[in-house]
Write a protein that binds this DNA or RNA. Structure first.
Length: 588
RNA sequence: GCACCUGUAGCUCAACUGGAUAGAGCGCCAGACUACGAAUCUGGAGGUUCGGGGUUCGACUCCCUGCAGGUGCACCA
């Protein structure tokens, strides 16, 4: 009995082999489509027979019977097979197979190996472009999703076997610097700069922006400052450098709390000397043309981009983010040899991404380069409970550091409520993990394509599909091992385990073996919420098991098999949470 | 005007990209702690999946169309 990591994939292959062995007409065209099934019907189901039979005017049930009969002995040993409904083939794993799987995939290393083997990601290099805030501004709630989703996506891709490069593509070269430098020269408060540089730069930006809005002359002067900066003016560069340093320090504090580490922080400025090549090549390829003084790319075959330009150089000669994004793709493909790039960016930039991707495709094709796979990992806006974008009462964006501080306060109050007996330093440490985890998880648990309603109560209420529910399950399992004086995964504690038997044991084991499916779905779709949903359901099965079957029983074979279940649940919960970017706790 | 996203239980969300009787949490109702952590568990009520057509063995999912909300569309990123 060969218990592959991904049992659905294995059954799929088995059915394909059965189709050949049974001399099914046109067997090569038969796709079994094995999926995780509703528990009522079994563990996995093959849906492919219906479509296949229908297209060939065959009786689906008869085809299903034939296929089932042609399945090899190792499948039959592994599961019960039944034909149901109009022609589904249902597979129900036998207790021994569940047990065997849990024994084989028993460590983090084993899971990682299973996830990476036979993965299409193995050997690929992915650049994940995420977070990417603008310097000179504090990170606010609008920066949360890219950072959180991007980190989870990066971890998932890496676990699936990809070589992942995390790149923080800072907005450190745009028009805002013209405005700040303009204001710096006129309205700088040196004392304030010394006290809190980022605060002062933010104030200067607002002053410059307001002036540019109000007076066309000021706007012109600000644009000139930007052109000077981009062409290497020493004074402007010095100011710009101060801004960058102050910003990076503040960003790093946020990243530390969120557990984010970048491999590179190559902002737009890094590409300043690389945009000329882009202008040159795109012009030579006949893709870019002059329009209203700017250099633009149109896509004649496209309904909108035939007339909506992709502006790759502004009419004043300055670069914009289209210029640098194009240069960035070239750099990533050349320097990092990347096969794919995932852009974790707001869905409002869908047009920009689409234009960028189209342009890269044509540009690379014409210059004989292999185009990378480009993915816009888009996400909706963070809304307040009124359904409007989340703001402070005065209409400002909520700063991320303040949001995280409030989360921690709320979590700390709750920990004091629930676990007053723990010493304060530990309660503080718990609050730190629970609060950040709750913020991350609330974001990740939802399908990223829709807007996301930020609600404190839902997030830290600790009921339902929340970080705290999962962390609680983890803490309870650790507690069991503490009580019994055993270490999770210790072979001695699991030795002599008897066969899985009770409904709760079996239900939990059935859930555990479906981890690979959830992982794969989340990774290939670049949608972490599939993993969240799975982990939540797993924690639910565990809680039901915990209530139904006591682990610390005197009967040692029973205790051993339940400890095995606890250890694997812990392993998968901790692995899964870690892949989402969360930290876990042993007590809470 | 054109395009994209969204519309599912009172509320917040799922539904593995076309599969079986659309599922969770909150809230509501009824239960379970002198058993390993009750931040938990068990059960119940709650649905014209925005409307209308179509495609097929099968549609929340795909196509057409209408409605509602959000977003983007020439030099901000």
């Amino acid at each position: 009995m060969e218990l592959s990591f991904n049992l659905a994939a294995r059954l799929d292959a088995d059915l394909q082999a059965a189709a050949r062995n049974a001399d099914l007409a046109d067997a090569a065209a038969f796709a079994p489509e094995v999926r995780v099934a509703d528990a009522r019907h079994g563990d996995f189901q093959a849906n492919g027979v219906l479509g296949y039979a229908k297209a060939r005017k065959l009786n689906p049930r008869a085809v299903a019977e034939k296929l089932a009969a042609a399945l090899g002995p190792s499948v039959r040993e592994m599961c019960d097979i039944a034909i149901a409904g109009p022609g589904f083939i249902n597979f129900t794993l036998r207790p021994a197979a569940l047990h065997g799987w849990l024994q084989r995939w028993a460590s983090r290393a084993a899971l990682a190996m299973g996830a990476a083997e036979n993965s299409p990601l193995s050997g690929q290099t992915w650049v994940v472009d995420y977070s990417s805030p603008n310097t000179a501004k504090q990170m606010h709630v609008g920066h949360l999703r890219s950072a959180v989703i991007g980190e989870a996506v990066a971890r998932l891709l890496a676990f699936g076997g990809a070589h992942v490069i995390r790149d923080n593509h800072l907005g450190d070269w745009g028009t805002q610097f013209g405005k700040i430098i303009w204001a710096y020269r006129r309205h700088l408060d040196a004392a304030a700069l010394a006290r809190d540089p980022l605060e002062e730069f933010e104030r200067l930006y607002k002053a410059g922006h307001a002036a540019a809005e109000a007076y066309p002359a000021a706007l012109k002067e600000a644009q000139q400052e930007l052109v000077k900066l981009q062409s290497g003016d020493a004074d402007n560069l010095a100011i710009w450098k101060k801004i960058g340093d102050a910003s990076l320090g503040a960003f790093q504090q946020i990243y530390d709390r969120l557990g984010i580490r970048f491999d590179h922080t190559l902002g737009e400025s890094f590409y300043n000397d690389k945009v000329e090549q882009v202008y040159r090549e795109l012009t030579a390829a006949g893709l870019a043309t002059e329009s209203q003084g700017a250099l633009v790319v149109f896509h004649p075959e496209h309904p909108r981009f035939a007339t909506q330009p992709f502006i790759i150089r502004k009419s004043d000669g300055a670069a914009n983010y289209a210029s640098t994004d194009l240069a960035t793709v070239l750099y990533r493909c050349g320097h990092f040899q990347s096969d794919a790039i995932a852009y974790v960016i707001d869905s409002r930039q869908g047009d920009h991404c689409e234009q960028l991707f189209l342009t890269v495709q044509k540009w690379f094709a014409q210059t004989g380069r292999r185009a990378p796979r480009l993915e816009h990992v888009s996400f909706g806006t963070v809304l307040g409970e009124g359904g409007k974008p989340l703001k402070t009462k005065s209409g400002e964006n909520i700063r991320l550091k303040e949001l995280l501080a409030e989360a921690e306060e709320r979590a700390f109050a709750l920990v004091g409520d629930k676990s007053a007996d723990l010493p304060e330093p530990e309660r503080r440490a718990i609050a730190a993990v629970v609060s950040v985890g709750s913020v991350q998880y609330a974001d990740l648990a939802q399908n990223r394509s829709s807007d996301y309603v930020f609600a404190w109560d839902k997030m830290i209420s600790l009921d339902g599909n929340t970080a705290a529910y999962l962390l609680y399950a983890v803490a309870r399992i650790h507690s069991i091992f503490r009580k019994l004086g055993a270490a999770p995964g210790d072979a001695a504690a699991e030795a002599g385990a008897s066969a899985l038997e009770t409904p709760a044991e079996l239900a939990l084991a059935r859930k555990l073996v479906k981890f690979p499916d959830a992982l794969q779905t989340a990774t290939t779709s670049l949608r972490p919420h599939f993993l969240c949903l799975y982990l939540y359901e797993l924690a639910g099965e565990f809680s039901a098991f915990y209530a139904a079957d006591k682990v610390a029983v005197d009967d040692l074979p029973i205790r051993a098999r339940r400890l095995l279940l606890c250890a694997r649940t812990l392993l998968i919960l901790e692995t899964g949470l870690q892949l989402l970017g969360l930290r876990t706790l042993q007590r809470m």
